[in-house]
Design a protein around this nucleic acid. Structure first.
Lengths: 146, 146
DNA sequence: AAGTCATGTAATACCTAAAGTTACACGACC
DNA sequence: GGTCGTGTAACTTTAGGTATTACATGACTT
């Protein structure tokens, strides 16, 4: 199954937006993502509605981040996408009559819930600013000395 | 996207097979799963190759479980499926040049790895016999007294 | 030996949601 | 008014699990 790449794409875009004051157009962002301007507008709509970014139309318009990077968590971004399914597996019959199937479903559901809680807890504590810090550490030596 | 239901289906089938000595045909299993005999043979192929079940052809043939339920873990079943992706999300560019994208990928990968380890650890310790036990607890009162 | 039952497997079509594409309305600036 | 950019709808593409059909192979029954 092709993975859902929207979360990582949004994080990527947000961190670039945090580096500049001039608005970025959907076209520019699409070029950065190797994607399409309409796709960019679509996946950014949630961030706009959540107040994390602002979009302006017309000449000199585009997208700007409207919060500090330590005020946005990965969970915020995930929720802006509508909290899509995290897992690729599940069960087919939500309310089976078979007792065995009920237990299997409960077992699988238990694993999924436990792992979901763990991931969302990571997302909740992970701020954009922390990823920014890691970018600094990833910088080549010649630039780290600045 | 529609979830991968093979793991839960296989667990369901294995527990039914553990309750009887007579072989179950793919057709019977398919009826149980609301599926198709060819689908059953396809998803069971890994279990057969792993020695967890045996298939016999011809009259009186079918599938039989070839181990005790406390000798099979959910992880065994998962691996028999070829260890399919657990997560529905990921990143598009595996080796990006952009430093920011590298950090985002590393962040996402970290969350996925942590959660994967947690799930696989659960799968490793979860035996079919434990699900069987839960089935007993799920039994109606009139039957639990037996 | 023939017929039936069941697995093994290939080929093909279906389903779903993200992703890509196209088109056009709306609004802002020159 | 013309251009630039967002907002959004409609449609196509894509990928993988799932469903369906078909047929070869092997085992048992008579």
């Amino acid at each position: 199954m092709r993975p859902d790449t929207r979360l990582s794409r949004l994080l990527h875009v947000l961190l670039h937006m945090a580096q500049t004051d001039t608005p970025m157009t959907s076209q520019q962002i699409a070029g950065m993502l190797g994607s399409n301007a309409a796709v960019v507008r679509r996946i950014m709509a949630g961030l706009r509605d959540g107040g994390y970014v602002e979009a302006e139309r017309g000449h000199g318009g585009g997208w700007r981040i409207s919060r500090c990077t330590d005020e946005i968590t990965v969970l915020d971004v995930y929720r802006s996408l509508g909290s899509p399914d995290l897992f690729a597996f599940g069960f087919s019959n939500p309310r089976p009559l078979c007792l065995i199937e009920q237990s299997v479903n409960a077992t699988i559901a238990g694993s999924i819930e436990t792992a979901t809680a763990a991931i969302l807890e990571q997302f909740r504590t992970l701020r954009l600013s922390q990823i920014e810090t890691e970018v600094q550490e990833r910088m080549p030596q010649c630039k780290r000395s600045n």
